[in-house]
Design a protein around this nucleic acid. Structure first.
Lengths: 228, 228
DNA sequence: ATTATGTATACTGTATCCAGAAGTCTCTTA
DNA sequence: TAAGAGACTTCTGGATACAGTATACATAAT
């Protein structure tokens, strides 16, 4: 992060530990680091060309995020998920995200509603064009916007932490048979219920949406199409 | 933590960072460290007689727990709560704890039910004797046991983290007019609904229970009887 | 009196080093 | 051959030192 005022450079660099944390996190979320992959302080430090200290601190932070777990023989590993984990996490997500959607329905403003509507419209348009990358992006954005409207910073933070666990599966989720269409239909219904100020309906729609997502992931895991 | 096998001492001491973390956390929870109190690495390190490293790591962990916040001028401070924070946190607690109670109703075994019943019986007995300390302890234990029955380690962890924010208020909560009696009545009703395998009823009872708790805390804060 | 500059202090972030623990491998002895 | 001891390797946790940054205070200049 650098700003330039004329010829004067104002540098506000993030601490190294933050940079390592974000880089590792991104690698995990995007699947560059596979579940089970072992990570060792010294190795990462040598690769990056820094000391162990910021690497260690990044590891501890990832550990607290439950994105890595500590190995008994030293080092950390990218977290793996059992079927039970998937059930557990989706259960918690359901509780949190439906609550956020409930709050969002209470608090949302008309301009935010129309932004959401625009996302759904764009999704339908992208579906017609078969632009799957765009659809994945719009799907994520719809949920980001929806939860942001709940006005609870801590809740959003929590939700995003849980969503991160399955970030690398979002493509598989949507590519499942009928995945794109179902997702758009769900979003359309949520939007409708929000316009009508029916928070309990939105809440239920989000629960069902997540239940469907969970079943898809479990099915894909069973078929060996994705690794836990 | 030391174990002794005959004359052989097996020492499994916790890392210093864990010890500092737990000690600071306890001081925060029990009100020894007041909201707003500033904490500085070097100072704590000097007081304890260790280097800064484990202190820093403990601070980061407490920060992640949202029990302390980073100060712009260096150091950390014990977290303060606005009324909005109280509302936010109780909202999230309500979502999480009611979900946990719902799961617990599905999973609980008869022996655990009778343990819960025993806690309620003991609470009524302690109320008659005016043993308030005992009542506070039993209240906490009831909830610990209830949530433990949900069989979701991550959910329990989350819930406990949120409960910790108001740990120092639990006495005020129960000492509020009619607090003890209401709490016992609530627990009795939850127990009844659990026996009857009505998870949605338990869920609602827990929501109402927490709503009441929130109102009490907000009222006590308004009256200046507790500091946020 | 006000503003600018220099210095001291307080703190953080990072690098380096040391000691210890745990696991693995090799050699020796029974 | 099997068991035990010692050496080696790999890793962590913590201590220490150094450099950088931000703030407060004192002094000099206008």
């Amino acid at each position: 992060m650098e700003k330039t005022f004329g010829m004067v450079r104002v540098s506000k660099r993030k601490p190294l530990r933050e940079e390592v944390y974000e880089s590792l996190k991104k690698s995990i979320l995007y699947g560059k680091l596979k579940a089970g992959q072992r990570l060792v302080e010294e190795q990462i430090a040598n690769q990056v060309g820094i000391s162990r200290t910021p690497v260690r601190e990044a590891f501890y932070k990832l550990e607290r995020d439950d994105l890595v777990r500590r190995l008994p023989k030293g080092g950390f590993a990218v977290r793996e998920f059992t079927r039970e984990d998937v059930e557990e996490i989706f259960g918690i997500r359901s509780a949190l995200e439906s609550y956020a959607a409930y709050l969002a329905t209470l608090h949302i403003t008309p301009d935010k509603l129309s932004t959401l509507e625009k996302k759904v419209d764009e999704s339908e348009s992208a579906l017609k064009k078969g632009d799957h990358e765009k659809l994945i992006q719009l799907h994520t954005e719809f949920h980001d916007l929806l939860y942001k409207a709940c006005k609870s910073k801590k809740l959003i933070e929590l939700i995003n932490n849980f969503r991160d666990y399955f970030f690398r599966y979002r493509s598989a989720l949507l590519h499942a048979p009928g995945g794109f269409q179902t997702s758009i239909t769900d979003h359309r219904q949520m939007l409708k219920a929000m316009k009508e100020k029916k928070p309990r309906v939105v809440e239920k729609l989000v629960r069902d949406h997540l239940e469907r997502g969970k079943e898809i992931i479990l099915r894909e895991i069973s078929k060996g199409r994705v690794t836990p």
